[in-house]
């Protein structure tokens, strides 16, 4: 086998490798942006149903507890 110049091989690997990584992730960014547009346009998330006012107090308590818990979890993680 003929002598391989390791450095020039390494440089070729670098070009191919970084090229592929960037291409993959740029493609991903493009697709994700596109996907987000489509989804938010045609399948928007339904706004949370408003609870009946009769249970207002307890519901509010639940929501407050949920919000605080979520905030704590987010802060801790």
């Amino acid at each position: 086998m003929e002598e391989v110049n390791l450095v020039s091989e390494g440089l070729k690997f670098m070009v191919l490798g970084m090229g592929t990584v960037f291409m993959f992730l740029i493609l991903m960014v493009v697709i994700l942006n596109f996907q987000a547009k489509i989804i938010n346009k045609y399948f928007p998330e339904k706004p949370k149903a408003v609870k009946s006012p009769s249970k207002k107090k307890s519901v509010n308590d639940d929501e407050v507890v949920a919000a605080i818990t979520a905030a704590i979890m987010k802060f801790r993680s």
Partner: peptide, 12 residues
């Protein structure tokens, strides 16, 4: 990839 090039350069 930078380290790959460095490592083979030092080997060579």
């Amino acid at each position: 990839f930078g380290t790959l090039v460095g490592a083979v350069a030092l080997s060579q």
